[in-house]
């Protein structure tokens, strides 16, 4: 995948590039002690490179569930999900993991940092998996942490950081391999206004500077406002 694909909006006069991801008729249900819980019915939308899309909806409407499918962490019950031209429904585990590691950066609602590992080590993990050599990994992890304002906390472990700081480490980690798709699940939920703005600036930068596609789940109208487009989940359907 090429990083410098022209921005769809800027590419006036040329063929519009195909979207980076597309979901069509996607459903996801869970079985809980014999009862079927339909969380997503019929979601259809696409996201292109350089776009920032906000996903909004009530609590329990299935935003996290949708994001897990987009992040290849979960598989849909039915429907199609195409990522970077690859139909992901028929992928085997190894290929899926690789596609996820190479192409997708995930910022979780609960951060999911590795305990007892320094901020530097946490940011380095995706690069370990990507086979980036040690020295380059170190330098890059340091740069990323400095970019989110944590240059002075490189060796702190998650339990020594505030919620906002942990979220920034998680963001740095998600961006460490310059993924084509950045997914963020309520990245600003636990943060004050200033931190929240900083995180959003970083995410929007990813699309503007690096031409990545960004999908961010949020409750915050201020955050949704800054997105190029808003997808609303109502009763498991996209609007």
């Amino acid at each position: 995948m090429t990083v410098d694909t022209p921005h769809p909006v800027a590419a006036t006069g040329r063929q519009p590039t195909p979207p980076l991801l597309r979901v069509e008729g996607l459903t996801r249900h869970f079985m809980v002690s014999g009862t079927r819980i339909d969380v997503l019915h019929d979601c259809t939308f696409d996201v292109s490179r350089g776009e920032v899309v906000a996903v909004v909806g009530q609590s329990g409407s299935g935003k996290s569930t949708l994001l897990n499918v987009l992040g290849l962490l979960d598989e849909p019950s039915s429907g199609a999900y195409t990522f970077d031209g690859v139909d992901t429904t028929s992928l085997r585990e190894g290929r899926r993991s690789r596609l996820r590691g190479d192409g997708i950066g995930f910022v979780f609602q609960q951060f999911h940092l590795l305990e007892r590992r320094s901020a530097l080590a946490n940011v380095g993990v995706p690069m370990v998996l990507g086979g980036v050599p040690l020295l380059r990994r170190r330098t890059r992890a340091r740069e990323l942490l400095e970019a989110v304002g944590l240059g002075h906390r490189l060796h702190s472990q998650p339990h020594q950081l505030s919620g906002g700081e942990q979220q920034r480490v998680a963001l740095a980690r998600a961006l460490s391999r310059e993924p084509a798709l950045v997914l963020a699940d309520e990245p600003t939920g636990a943060l004050d206004a200033a931190s929240s703005t900083m995180i959003m600036d970083q995410l929007i930068d990813q699309s503007r500077v690096r031409d990545a596609a960004v999908v961010v789940v949020t409750h915050d109208p201020k955050v949704a406002e800054r997105a190029d487009r808003v997808v609303e989940l109502v009763e498991g359907r996209t609007r």
């Binding site: 962490l73 585990e93 993991s97 995930f106 590795l114 305990e115 993990v125 998996l129 990507g130």
Partner: peptide, 16 residues
Amino acid sequence: RRELATYRALGASRFT
């Protein structure tokens, strides 16, 4: 489990 799931979310395969 949590630690390993985190690794997998970051792109580690089961084999790794």
